[in-house]
Design a protein around this nucleic acid. Structure first.
Lengths: 132, 132
DNA sequence: AGTATTTATTTAGCTAGGTAAATAAATGCG
DNA sequence: CGCATTTATTTACCTAGCTAAATAAATACT
């Protein structure tokens, strides 16, 4: 395996695991938090809007939303178009998200803090360059 | 989610999916190929050697090896230390791996080709810098 | 209006990672 | 020696991605 890919995959797994560790105190998993944060910023969204935005396949989102609904973080509401379901944050989520967001932002800052802003930009550029 | 992490995760998933696409013609998945390639370079290894080298937890390797054994790519042999299992490439694997390796190297080259060697080094350095 | 196609979501089932705990063999020590 | 601890592997079960196919509603076409 190309060492560059190996390093990329490994760092990706490592960061996800760290994120999950931090989120444990809030009884959340990284993928769940990603969706909650997305809804927090964009307001209510349909399932399709969510998976297109997060660049993930629909079934992954269906499963995650079902779990988040069970746990009381989101509500599924029938849209005007009866095919679509609109996903909204619950009052519980609205109440608890700010403090969670704060801990996660701190974590991300710590994780990425050794890189200057220029290095971060450079990193993104190099990522984009792969498979041009 | 920090856009840098988002981009990192997404590229990681994207490359894995592409790899799987290429490997489909050989009836292999990326994780299986990773292990076969590892054995091809290092020769026979115990399970522990494999998971420590690949930086993955043991159960993931157990499952992958079981599958590879079923498919005839590897053999599990009892070690002198009766606790450990030594994993070896089968003659079938030895025969077929060279051509597979060639197609994968071509794929990796294509994937990473837009980056100069210096950029690749720079990318690795930036990756390492995260969570110093 | 009636039918074919598209679109949104879900279901089923796969790989691939993780943790926690079970099992079995080897090692260390009183 | 006998027993506790360590080490290697496995099992069970969870999240998290994927594809393929099912379902149901909306839209397009004739």
């Amino acid at each position: 395996m190309n060492p560059l890919f190996h390093a990329l995959f490994q760092k990706s797994r490592y960061i996800t695991n760290c994120l999950n560790e931090v989120l444990k105190q809030h009884n959340l998993y990284s993928s769940q938090w990603t969706i909650l944060y997305c809804l927090h910023n964009h307001g209510s969204m349909t399932l399709t809007q969510i998976w297109k935005y997060l660049n993930v396949e629909a079934p992954s989102i269906t499963r995650a939303i079902t779990r988040l609904e069970d746990l009381g973080w989101v509500l599924r509401i029938d849209g005007e178009d009866k095919r679509e379901k609109i996903v909204t944050l619950s009052p519980y989520a609205e109440e608890h998200l700010p403090v969670i967001t704060k801990t996660i932002l701190a974590f991300e800052e710590e994780m990425v803090g050794a890189l200057t802003v220029e290095e971060q930009q450079q990193f993104m550029i190099l990522l984009e360059k792969m498979k041009g």
